[in-house]
Amino acid sequence: MNWIIAIIQTLLFVALAPLLAGWLKWCKCRLQNRRAPSLFQPYKDLIKLSSKQPVVAEHASWIFTRSPYIIFSAMVLAASVVPFIAVDLPTSASADVIVLVGLFGFARFFLALAGLDIGTAFGGMGSSREMTVSSLAEPAMLMAVFTLSMAASTTNLSVAITHVLEQDLVLRPSFVFALLALILVAVAETGRIPIDNPTTHLELTMIHEAMILEYSGRHLALIELASQLKLMLYGVLIANIFFPWGIAESFTPEALGYGLLAILGKLALLAIILGISETVVAKMRLFRVQEYLSFAYLLGLLGMLSHIILEASR
């Protein structure tokens, strides 16, 4: 029974990811005084792409054509690990938050290899920049996560969320710092403004788009869906770890429905905030990214230190 709920939750996660992307686009359009496309436009795009014949660069090897499947599978697995509408599901025990970071790394590894596979300058440029950004983002992310897992004495996401739920509503300075750090990392890792611009194809600024420039058809559809999943994963992580209220703790239909509504509301709110920040903030030069990410790391470190100095039990 629990396994069935876990599978349904994962499928729901995958099914809703394009909706979040559509909603984000809708918000941004409205904020920028533009006519917004339909909320379901990402679904239509995915269906269109997946029914087209893919065109593959002539020098590409199997790495290029198989990578989309690998990247997508890693992201689906990551989606199954993160508590979405309910905690205590069996899948969340199979991998903890460090494995989650590892799964992101797995997807990124193949994405960067696919960028190098076609043998153009664009692909190499994208891979090189992506690896630079992610190698700076990963310590910051783990620092934020460590703060949390030290406070909850676990790296298991489900247990950590339950721990936060059981506590009274207190403002913990370490959590505030960790939240800020995780938000900064999430923006960098999902390739949003000010680090990367998902809508650009300008060679001087592309990171993610440069790597996937040669993809088309079903391959592109999978990569697009994977990056939508990644955006949603970070959203759910932030929403459910720091504001877990509403998540289902038992598996009754009411609790689950309530949990679904709660997470949808939280994600919608987060997307609005992201939309506003993308509207008011300008994209950063590539060589200022390290300042941004070291700031995120510093916030994570401050969170850790404030946990040790202020909050630890002894």
Partner: peptide
């Protein structure tokens, strides 16, 4: 914990390094 974060940086850099190795030797 700070040294654990250094370990995270090491792991991320190692991934970048070996993407470079595999990508430049075998791909393209």
């Amino acid at each position: 914990p700070v040294s654990a974060a250094a370990l995270a940086l090491t792991a991320a850099l190692a991934a970048a390094c070996f993407i470079k190795v595999f990508g430049l030797i075998f791909l393209g």
